[in-house]
């Protein structure tokens, strides 16, 4: 199952794109409650959003973004059937991609 959930909503000729990504977003200063050792940093570094193969957002993300990050953007125009592709890469090299069709 993908770690990315995408929702889109058409409103007044615009399209709102919302996404929820399942990710721990550890910044590396938290301690494990049981072992009292530092939890290594593990956070999303790059977020890319494509609209019909054009990159519309390229984001550099830091560990200051909350656990299971949520992002929302507003697209000018956008039509039913448009393809939105969202992908992320974290500092450990993990990555995920998810497609979404605007309804």
């Amino acid at each position: 199952m993908s770690s990315i959930k995408i929702r889109s909503k058409r409103m007044d000729g615009k399209t709102q794109i919302r996404m929820l990504i399942a990710h721990p977003m550890e910044h590396g200063r938290n301690r494990d409650a049981k072992t009292d050792s530092l939890i290594p940093a593990h956070f999303i570094q790059k977020l890319t959003v494509k609209h019909n193969k054009n990159v519309i957002i390229s984001g550099n993300i830091g560990a200051n973004v909350s656990k299971d990050p949520y992002f929302a953007f507003m697209l000018k125009g956008g039509n039913i059937g448009d393809k939105i592709t969202i992908s992320w890469v974290d500092n450990l090299g993990n990555k995920d991609t998810q497609d979404h069709i605007v309804k």
Binding site: Y70, F71, K76
Partner: peptide
Amino acid sequence: SPDLEPFVSTRLK
């Protein structure tokens, strides 16, 4: 990109 409204929403620590 110019296709987007200047609008960003997220959650911070």
